[in-house]
């Protein structure tokens, strides 16, 4: 088969393939691209982290970042909140932080002689909870209720949170003084755990260059690329990405493998499995497809499992690799 015929056949095949592959809805693609550009400009040299953060956002999950101080966690959260046109709130968790400091409280208004509800930081679109492991378990549970239910109940009154409520929690892996480690049940409420890590040399140099003569003007938030409503529609659209039966079997086999691994005491829960599927859908959508492939599942495996697996191992990465090695990728089964 000569090169010319190969080229012509390839062109025809590509056209057909592209026409058939109408995965991403075009009306959202530009928004996603803009969102991606905004976050990449904020967090330089961390494209993969940005992708995972976007996937977490689209999957309606919450994010846990475990990293050292000064790596851009707050910057990322702010940029994300502003990009989706939402309200940003930040809570610095300390041991004396009360639940009402997070959820809000009723205060008696002398003038109106009524109790008025003062919303807490949870009533925002993006909440950054810094050093969450320093808050007391009681305070932590107040936040987790909000994360799980997207509502808070105060004095028997249920206050709904925005549908696009998104929590980015951080914790410092080094400083353990006065810390209240999150229990497994609480960790399971996070969609994924990430570590940003230090930027590479080129990105650091670029960062320094950009900061010269920047002043305060550059600290102003950028324009929103999405509205909360659009984000909600986008999230609903992502939830419709097709997941084949073989992929679901693959997910279930992987979950079972985590539970049966001899070093793992607590494997993946059904809630974690659902989260994994949603994240895989989000990943597929970000790659421009309307169906999930095993690559998507594998790509989000580490962030999903890192936050959930516990047992007798130093690093969950080794366990995750073994689990992925153990299960065959579905190819010709259906």
């Amino acid at each position: 088969m000569n090169e010319a015929s190969v080229n012509s056949m390839t062109a025809v095949a590509q056209t057909d393939s592209q026409q058939a592959s109408a995965g991403a809805d075009c009306r959202f693609q530009s928004s996603i691209d803009a969102l991606r550009r905004t976050l990449n400009s904020t967090l330089r040299g961390k494209d993969d982290v940005v992708e995972l953060v976007l996937a977490c956002l689209l999957a309606r999950g919450h994010l846990l970042i475990e990293d050292l101080p000064g790596l851009g966690k707050t910057t990322l959260a702010k940029a994300l909140a502003h990009a989706v046109g939402g309200c940003f709130a930040r809570v610095q968790c300390t041991p004396d932080l009360l639940p009402s400091d997070i959820t809000g409280f009723n205060m008696f208004n002398q003038k109106t002689r009524e109790f008025e509800f003062n919303e807490g930081p949870v009533f925002s679109d993006v909440l950054l909870a810094d050093e969450i492991n320093r808050a007391t378990p009681r305070t932590q549970s107040a936040l987790f209720e909000a994360m799980a239910e997207r509502q808070v109940t105060i004095d028997k009154v249920c206050h709904k949170l925005p549908e696009t409520f998104f929590v980015i929690a951080t914790q410092n892996p080094v400083d353990s003084h006065g810390a209240y480690p999150l229990p497994e049940a609480q960790l399971d409420r996070f969609a994924m755990k990430l570590s940003i890590g230090y930027p590479d040399r080129v990105s650091e140099l670029q960062m320094l260059a950009d900061d010269v003569g920047a002043g305060e003007t550059n600290s102003q938030p950028g324009a929103a690329v999405l509205t909360p409503d659009a984000l909600r529609h986008l999230q609903q659209h992502v939830a419709t990405v097709h997941v084949a039966e073989s992929i679901q079997s693959y997910l279930v086999d992987l979950a079972k493998a985590t539970r049966e691994h001899r070093d793992v005491l607590l494997g993946l829960s059904p809630r974690g499995l659902l989260t994994w599927q949603r994240l895989a859908q989000a990943e597929a959508h970000l790659r421009g497809r309307d169906f999930v492939t095993p690559d998507d599942v594998q790509h989000v495996a580490a962030p999903v499992l890192q936050v959930r697996l516990s047992g007798d191992f130093e690093s969950p990465q080794h366990v995750i690799e073994k689990v992925l090695d153990q299960i065959s990728v579905p190819v010709l089964s259906n």
């Binding site: 095949a13 393939s17 058939a20 190819v331």
Partner: peptide, 28 residues
């Protein structure tokens, strides 16, 4: 490589997708 990419797309669509490829897959 472009052919391979198209073939990969077509195989993924057949194996994991809902909308299956067109006749061009024969040549692919």
């Amino acid at each position: 490589q472009a052919t391979i990419r198209s073939f990969i797309d077509a195989t993924e669509r057949v194996l994991y997708g809902e909308n299956h490829p067109l006749e061009a897959v024969w040549r692919l």
